[in-house]
Design a protein around this nucleic acid. Sequence first.
RNA 1: GGGAUCGUAGCUCAGUUGGUUAGAGCACUCGCCUGAUAAGCGAGAGGUCACAAGUUCGAGUCUUGUCGGUCCCA
Length: 1051
Amino acid sequence: MNIPDLENEQLEFWRRSHVFERTMSEREDRPRFVFYEGPPTANGKPGTHHVIARAFKDLFPRFKTMRGYYVLRKGGWDTHGLPVEIEVEKELGLKDKKEIEAYGIAPFNEKCRQSVFRYINEWEKFSERMAYWVSLDDAYVTFTNEYIESVWWLLRQLWDKKLLYKGKRVVPYCARCGTPLSSHEVAQGYKDVKDPSVFVRFPLRDEPGTYFLVWTTTPWTLPGNVALAVGRDVDYVLIEGPTEDGGVERLILAEALLSYALKNRDAYRVLDRFKGSTLTGKHYSPLFTFLPVEQDYAYVVEGDFVSTEEGSGIVHIAPAFGQDDMQVGKKYGLPVLETVLPNGAFIDAVRPWRGMWVKDADAEIIKDLQGRGLMYRVTLYEHSYPFCWRCNSPLLYYARDTWFVATTEYRDRLIALNQTINWVPSHIRDGRFGNWLEDLKDWALGRERYWGTPLPIWRCDNPECGHMLCVSSVDELSRLSGFDQSNLDLHRPYVDEVHWACRECNGHGTMYRVPELIDVWFDSGSMPAAQWGYPHRNQEMFKEQYPADYICEAVDQTRGWFYSLHAISGLVFDSVAYKNVISLGHILDENGLKMSKSRPETFVEPWQVFNKYGGDAFRWYMYTSGPPGEPRRFSLDLVGEVVTKFWLTLWNTYSFFVTYANLEGWSPEQPAPPVAARDPLDRWVLSELHGLVREVTAALEAYDAPGAARPIQSFVDQLSNWYVRLSRRRFWKSEDSGSAYATLYEVLTTLAHLLAPMMPFMAEMLYRNLVAGVKPGAPDSVHLAAWPEVNEGLIDRELMDGMALAQRLVSLGRAARESVNLRVRQPLLEAAFALRSASERESIGRLSDLIADELNVRKVTILDGAGDVVAYALNPLPAKLGRKFGKDFPRVQKALREGAPEDVARWARTLLAGQSVTVTLDGQDYEALPEEVEVQQRAAEGYALAEDAGYLAALNITLSEDLVLEGLAREVVRRIQTMRRDADFEISDRIVVTYQGSKRVVKAIKAHMDYVSGETLADALLSSEPGQDAFSQSFTIDEEDVVLSVRRVVP
RNA sequence: GGGAUCGUAGCUCAGUUGGUUAGAGCACUCGCCUGAUAAGCGAGAGGUCACAAGUUCGAGUCUUGUCGGUCCCA
C-alpha cells in the first residue's frame, strides 16, 4: 500500500478535471460562504506550523461547498514590512538605515520586491500536496498599486473621521531598526532577561545626609531623570542606619519594601512614618545635569502607578523613556530630557558616555554613581523585557513623534462588535481578545522605514502654514500634483518625489509627503477591501464578499491579523470583518517549543511527512490530536499512528468490500433489501452511520473539528472490528449477502462524503471507485457532491445500546475464558450473564445469537435470580438515590450494601422482580425503586467467572467429548486456512485436503466433515497420505498428532 | 506584577448539568484470534486526577489559594 502514490493519483485527477475550479464555477448561483485567506509571506519556506493552519482553513470551505454554498477561495500574499527588509539587509550586508540610504532606496526596494516571492514555488507545491485549495493565480498581493490604493482610501476614511493624528508618545522603539513598534509587534518579542537592578540614593536638597532610595532596572535612563514619584496613600518611613564607610545615613522608602530593598534590614531603625502625600514637592539634588533646565524640577510628585510589590516604592521619572513618566511629566509641566539619539546612543551633551549604546552604558553609569557614593545597592534582576521581534535587539521606551490611529475613540464599538463573533475556542472572545480591546491603546501606525505602504499624507513645508491632507487615490494624486500619476510606483522613493505648491499659503510652501510608511499589519487588516481594490474597482465583489463567514489563523494573530481586520473594519465600515474565527494553538516541537522559521533547528520538514504517511494522515492528525486552540507537540510517529489506527483500518475495510463484491459479482445496481428486513448487524451499523452523519454535521456547523473527526474515527473502528468481522461470512456464503453488500456499500460511500472535507484524498479515492461512473448522474468528484442527509428513521437507539452491551458481554465472556485458559476455538455449552436491569435483558435477547457466535458457545442465557445464582450484592446508585435522600444517603447506602446476607438476598429478589424495597432506619422509611439500586449476582461453582461493574459472565466449562471433537475440528480448519495462505492459494481456490492422525482427530474430522470442507473450500477431505504435489504439514493439537496436506483443484 | 489557558497512566488524549470501582490509544509483558488488515481480542502492569483548603450526602468536575507549562499584557 503506497499512500503517496494513491494521493498523487487524486492530485492528478483534480488537476486534469479542474475539480477545484469547478467547486466555484459550478456554484456561482448558490448562496455565498465567505472565506478570507490570511496572507502568508512567501520569503520563507512553509513548515509544519503552516500545515495545521491550512488544514483548518481548508476544512470548512470544503464542507460548505458540499453543503451547497459557493465558496470563493482567493489567495493572498503579505509582501511588505520589516521582515522582508531585514532579509534583504542581511543579503546585502547592510547594517543600519544609513547604509540602506547610501545603497539607495530604489534599488533596496527593488530587492525587497524580488525577495518576497523567493519561495513561491515551494508554497504552491506545498499547498497542492496537502490539498489546500486556494486560488493562487489571482491571489491578492499587498505591494501592488491597486492594493496600496485601497489602503490609502481606508486611511482617508480614518483621516476624514479625524482618527489619524501625530503626537509625541513614548513608544517601544527599536534603535537598530530605527522604528517604533506597534504594541502587537512588541507582544511577540518578550523574553526573560537579567538586567541590573539598582537602588540609588537621591540626596534631599534641604536635608543633608538624607536620601530617597530609588529603584530602577534601566540605569541609562537616570541622566533623563526629572522627578521622583510616590504613591499618595502608600506608607513611607524615614530610617537610620550605617553607611559602608562607617558613617550614618537616613533613607526614605516605602515601609512595605523595607526587607525587599535594604541590604540588612536589622541594621536600621525607623525614625518616622508618613503617607506619600507628605513627601510631594520635596526637592532633591539631580544626579546629573547634562542638559540645561529652565523650569522647576527634581522634586517629588504623585503617581498612581507606584507599586509596593517590588523596588522601594519611589519611582524615578524620565519622561522621554517611559509611558507613565511622560504622562506624569505632562501633568506637572516637567521638562523632557532627550538624552538619547534615535540610534540608541547618548547625545554629545552626555559627555562621559556620548555615542555609547545605552545598554552598554549601564555599567559605566553604575560605576560613576558608586564613585560618588550615590549607589546603594546593585543586583541582577530577572524579568520579562520586550525585544524587537525580528532583529532581537532590546527595545527602548523612547519619545517619538509618530502617527496614530485613534482606535480608543471606537473602543466601545469594537467591544460590542466583538461580542457578535463566534470564537473557537470561545474563551478568546472575552479572554485574550476581549481583554485586549478593553485595554485598547491607540494604534501606532507610523514606521520610519522603506519597504511598505507609504502613509499618504502630504504636508506643506512652510512652517507658518503646515497644511496637511490625506490622499485616497492615484487619480486624486494626479489632480493635486498636476501630472498624470497613473504609472507611478506608489512605493518610496518614487512617491516621495511627487509634490506641489501649497494652495493654502498661496504657494509659499510646497506639499511634500511625510516620511513614514504604515504598520504592515494595517496592510493585511485592509484585505477585505484591498484584495478587490475597493472602492476604486470591483465594488460588487467587495459587497458580496464582506464580511467573512470564516477565518482561521494561529493564536499569535490575536493581536495581529485578527485585531487589524477587526479594528479597520469597525472603524471604517462599522461592521465585524469575520463572523467565525478559529484561533489555533502553536505546533510545538518534541521539546515543547514553538516551531518557527526564526528557529531553524526546530523546523520540521513537512515533505518528510507527506512522503512517508501522506497528506490525509497529516491533516487528520491536526484535526484529532487535541483541542484546536491548545498547543500540541508534534512528531512523525504521531502521524504514523494515524495511518495504522485509522487510515489503514478504513482502507482494509474498503479493500475487503471490493475484493468480495468483485468475487461474488455484486454491484450497486442490484436492488437492496429493505433495511427493516436486514440482519440486526446491518441495521445496527446503518443506525450508527446515520447517528454519525448527524453528529459530524452538527460539529462542523459549529466549527468543531475534533468533534467531527473523532466520532468518524471510532465509527471506522467499530465498522472494521465489529461489523465486518462479525459479518464476514455473510459476504461470501449466504443468501443474505445482498443485504450485507448493500449495507457496507452505503456505509463506505457515506463515509467518503463525511471524510471529504478532512481527508480529501482517501474520500476521493473511495468515491471515484465506488460512486462516480457507477451511480448515474453522480458528480465525478466527491468534492462536487452534496453532503449526506441524515435518515432519522434508521437511527435505532435501543439497538445501538443493545449492541454496546453485547460488546461488553462478549468482552466479559472472553475474560472468563481467559481465567481458565480456554481458547475461543474450543466450543462451550453455555454462557450465562447477569445484567443490571430488566430492560437490558430485553434488548440483549435479540442479540444472543451474535454473542453465542463470538464466544463460541452453544447457548446464551440470562441469569434471572433463581437457580444458579448463589449470592447477591446491592449497589445503591448515588446518581439517583443521592439526589433523593440528600444527606441521609450514606446511611441508606450503607444499610443496603452491608445488610445481613439474607436481607440482601430478599431485597435483591424483590428488586429483580421489579418491586421497590423499603429500609427503616431510626424509625424512618426509605423506599428504593428497582432502577435506583443495582443488583449484583454471583454465579455457582462449575462456571468460569468474570465480573465488571455489575455485569457477570459465567461460562459452563464442562467439556463433553462432543465439544472436544468440535474444538478439534475447528483447530484443523484453522491449520488448513493457514496452509492455504502459506501455499499462496487464491482465496477462491477450491482444494483437496488429506489427513492422517490420531484416532481422536480423525474422529473429529469425520464428525464435522461438512463443516471442515465448507470452511476451507475443500472439494474432498481424504483420509490418506499427502499427494506428491500437495503442500503438507504436521501438527500437534492438544497432544493429538495430525498430518494435513492441501492441493489446489484445477477447475 | 496582571490576564487567558492548560495540568488526568511512561507518551498522546477523553471524561457531559458534581454521582457507581476515573477511561481510550501508543509503548511493554503474557495469552488468544485471524478467509480483508501494517490489524483485532483478553489479561497484566501503569493514577495521591499538580498540590492544599473550602462548598456538598458526594469533587477529576464548583470556589479560593499555591506550584508548574504555554500564550498574552505591563
